[in-house]
Nucleic acid binder design. Structure first.
Lengths: 136, 136
DNA sequence: TTAGATGCAAACGTTTTGCAACTAG
DNA sequence: CTAGTTGCAAAACGTTTGCATCTAA
């Protein structure tokens, strides 16, 4: 729980029941959900919410920088409500579930300038892959 | 160039003109291509090759472990023929182009056992993000 | 009151699949 | 000869968009 809703409110973001429910669903869970999973859970609280609104809302949260989009698995994107605290991801190759992990050090500092090829490097993400207890 | 074709032949993989052309196109280029880009280049050498065959062939190469699939950007997957030599990726947020980089150290060793949550961790990939010289 | 959010359904880009024809071994 | 591969077209999948309606501020 990282108070996503508070942060969005604090930014003066126009609040609607749909947006609140999307934020609550995303923030309440510690695994990272796909857009469709968010929609399924949101429907439980607000039956008339549409898939398009969920997609649009998630996209806006990403643009605001309050949510991170994870394209880590080959299938649907997953959304991470924990955009402020630096962390990395542990992905199960079997079921696609994602856990946050916090290895030591900042990966950005490990890429020497002579390996940046003129790029302006601004972020680094580490994805650890393996099998979760259930899948192994 | 990493002799992808040789490796595939060495595994007794049934060789056809389509498969050879896909392997050549993928291996000949140092940027990492999308399936559609591979198809476009393959058509230049073998006009009747179909999109489905390119997709299937790339998928098989991935299953064989000779090619790595990169879902790094929100768009189409890209394919990396260099599945042996350990390396990381530098992705342009503007145009999606991907470069190989070789930072020091093995990221796997940076994830302590108490952060593995029962997972059998087998791989770690670092994605550096930024803007390439053309996009910045 | 009104700029902006919603729901619907249709479009979109990427990838997979069913099936008959073809071909490497 | 035959198991495995191909091309085609259509379907599947995740996601985005156009537009009329509705609503938070």
């Amino acid at each position: 729980m990282s108070d996503l809703l508070e942060r969005l409110r604090g930014r003066g973001w126009r609040m609607t029941s749909q947006r609140r429910v999307v934020a609550e669903v995303l923030d309440g869970d510690h695994v990272h959900l796909t857009a469709d999973e968010v929609h399924a859970l949101a429907v439980g609280r607000l039956p008339e919410i549409s898939r398009a609104t969920v997609y649009n809302t998630l996209g806006e949260m990403v643009s605001l920088g309050e949510v991170t989009e994870l394209s880590t698995d080959g299938r649907a994107k997953r959304y991470d409500p924990n955009a402020h605290r630096p962390h990395q991801h542990l992905v199960c190759s079997g079921c696609g579930v994602i856990r946050d992990v916090h290895p030591a050090g900042d990966p950005l500092t490990d890429l020497p300038p002579d390996q940046r090829y003129g790029f302006t490097v601004s972020a680094a993400a580490i994805t650890y892959r393996g099998l979760c207890p259930e899948c192994s």
